Computed example of a mutant assay.
Amino acid sequence: MHTEDTTLEDLLTIAVRQARLLCATARGVNCGRTTRETATAARILQGLEAGNVLRDDLDGGLQALHAHLSDAIATEKVGYRRVFDGHHDPEGGDVGVVREIPVLSDRGAALLPVLRRCEALIAARDAARDRLRAEQTLRRLL
């Protein structure tokens, strides 16, 4: 995300939107492998729905949610499929590589968009918080 020309208000709007989208994407999805992880995820999502996405106490929770989701997805791989990544050159034939892409179970496929939304929220929060701190520092210097 290029944030150099984006206002603080716009960065905050993006972070709030990402939090809303994360909560909507996670609705109805069991985001943990254990009862404890599921409860932690539910608590973090409730906190996001209830208030300020820049709260410092969300840092550890979002990192924990990201770790839980990553670990859960890693256990949901049911195999691999090969995909060609490249193009066909009429004179030289196929140019590229064959990659093995994991095939996820239904649960893993449901968790993946939640993980992507979590990553987007973390990035949006970081950008907004960096801009906020920079503006606060500039105000102190002036």
Rank of each mutant, 00 (worst) to 15 (best):
E100F: 07
L132D: 01
A109F: 09
D85L: 10
L21I: 04
A127G: 04
V95N: 06
H2Q: 15
L115S: 00
L54T: 10
V16P: 00
L138W: 07
H66L: 10
A15G: 00
I101Y: 05
R116G: 05
E135C: 06
H68S: 07
D56S: 15
L141D: 08
L58K: 04
R17S: 03
I44C: 02
L104D: 13
T38S: 09
L22P: 02
G93K: 01
E91C: 03
T25I: 06
A72N: 07
A67W: 09
M1Q: 11
V103W: 14
G108L: 11
L62Y: 03
L54V: 03
V103Q: 15
R81P: 00
L62C: 06
H2R: 15
L138K: 11
A41P: 00
A67M: 10
A128E: 08
A19Y: 02
R36H: 06
G96T: 05
R81F: 05
E9T: 10
A50M: 08
T137K: 12
A124S: 08
D106W: 10
L54M: 13
A26E: 04
L132G: 00
R20E: 15
L112N: 07
R140T: 09
A109H: 13
A24P: 00
G93I: 02
L111Y: 05
R139Y: 09
E135P: 02
L111P: 01
K77W: 09
